[in-house]
Amino acid sequence: MNYRRLLLISVPYLWLFALFLVPFFIVMKISLSDLAIAIPPYTPTLSLGEGWQGFKEFWSGLDMENYIFLTEDDLYWKAYLSSFKIAFFSTVLTLLVGYPIAYGMANAPPEWRPTLMMFIILPFWTSFLIRVYAWMGILSKQGFLNQFLLWSGLIDDPLVLLNTNIAVYIGIVYTYVPFMILPIYATLEKLDGSLIEAAVDLGCSRFKAFWLVTIPLSKSGVIAGCFLVFIPALGEFVIPSLLGGSRTLMIGKVLWEEFFSNRDWPVASAVAVILLLLLVIPIVLFQRNEQKQREAEQ
C-alpha cells in the first residue's frame, strides 16, 4: 500500500516538477544571462562536463544587466503601466456589464436559471480566438458597428475603432464577462430574499435596499470576479495583438515580440519574471478573499 501511495504521489508530483517548476527556474536563469548570436541565443550555458570550474564560470556570467536594461528603456515600464491601466479599466467595465446580467439571472424564475447559466458558459467552450476574431468584422472601418451608426445617422464619418485601445477594452470585456458573471451570480443566488424585504419593511426604498443590502452582500463575488478578469487580462496577448493597434502596449505582446521578432531571449525572460512578480500581489489578495469567503460560509 505504501508503495502504491508513493507512486500515486510521485507521478503527478514529478511531472509538475519537471514541466512547471524546472522551466520556471530556467526562465529565471536565462533572464540573468546575456544575449549571444548562437544556438541557444544566450550565454553562459552550463556545461556540466567541466565540473566545478564550469559551474563557477557559469555563475560569474550571470548578472542583472537585463533588469537594468528594462528600467533604462522606457518601452518596458510604459508597457507594464499601460497593461495595468488596460487591465484595470477593462475590469471595471466588465463589472459594470456583468453585474446587471448576474443580478437579472439571480432574480429570474428558478426554472430558467440552468438554461441562462448554460448560455453564459456556452461561449466559454467556443474558441477564444474565434470570439476575438468576431469583433474584427464588427469594429473595422467598414464593419457592422460603423455601418449601423452611419445608417442610424448618429455619426457622419466612420469611427476608427479597430486597432485602438477601445477595441482592446471591448475585446477583454466580451471574452472575460462570463468570469465576472459566475461568481457574482453565485453570491446573489444565495442571497436570502427576505433580507431585501426586511430592509424595505424597515423603511428603505427598493433602490436603497439594493445599495445597502444587495451590494455589500455580493462584495465577495464582485471581488472574486474582478480578480478573475484582472489577472489574465494583465498578461493578455491575443486581444491586443488582434484588436489593438501598434500603439497598444501590453506586456504580453511585448514579451511575444521580444521573443519571436527580436529573438532576445534573456530580455524576454526578464520581462516574464517581472510580470510574475507583479501578478503575485493580486493573486495573494485573491486567495485571501477566497479564504475569507470560505470561513464566512462555515
Binding site: 520556471f24 504580453g252 501578478l279
Partner: peptide, 11 residues
C-alpha cells in the same frame, strides 16, 4: 493564474 505567455516561454 500564470499568464500563457510565461507558461509557453518557460516550456
Amino acid at each position: 493564474v500564470m499568464p500563457e505567455v510565461i507558461t509557453g516561454l518557460s516550456l
